[in-house]
């Protein structure tokens, strides 16, 4: 791991602004800073919070928003919660899988993009909802899911 990333981890863990600092708040800060939780971050959190690395892993593995390898450049999230389901999320998920060449959630083999299923993106009034790199888009049809993803794939920087 390069020094710049280690420094980002150090800053995320040790310079939190809020007064209540916990294992979870530290992990979320690392995720915000570098997009994943490497073992170096688990070590840093265990030192900062004075708990074992096992205690830190216990928290990190409980919440499915954490990932443990570097993120790809393109993160596609599709909601499958009941509001979106009623409005046709299943077809949107199939379209997203097809556009990314995936059969389930996860990273594409070329490491360029990630598909994640989400249980609620928070804009139920505009169901079905997807998010591309955390930017919400509502009333998605299978066709515009495909076109938004292929557009994002071509404009994403080379990995």
């Amino acid at each position: 791991m390069d020094d710049a990333t280690l420094q980002l981890i150090d800053r995320a863990v040790n310079d939190q602004l809020q007064s209540t600092v916990t294992v979870l708040s530290s992990l979320l800060a690392v995720e915000d800073a570098i997009g994943y939780i490497p073992t170096e971050a688990v070590d840093a959190v265990s030192v900062r919070m004075d708990v074992t690395v096992n205690d830190v892993w216990a928290v990190a593995t409980f919440y499915p928003n954490f990932r443990f390898d570097p993120p790809t450049d393109l993160r596609v999230e599709v909601c499958w919660g009941p509001s979106c389901h009623v409005m046709g999320a299943t077809a949107v998920i199939s379209a997203a899988q097809e556009a990314l060449g995936l059969s389930d959630e996860g990273d594409t083999p070329d490491g360029k993009a990630t598909l994640r299923y989400n249980t609620c993106l928070g804009a139920c009034a505009h169901a079905p909802v997807m998010a591309i790199n955390h930017h919400l888009a509502g009333r998605i049809t299978p066709d515009n899911a495909r076109s938004k993803i292929s557009q994002a794939l071509t404009s994403a920087p080379a990995h």
Binding site: Q18, T20, L28, F62, Y63, P64, N65, T119
Partner: peptide, 12 residues
């Protein structure tokens, strides 16, 4: 009285 925002990860 003090107030702060606390965040959680994804967990219903």
């Amino acid at each position: 009285f003090d107030v702060e925002v606390a965040l959680t990860g994804d967990s219903y």
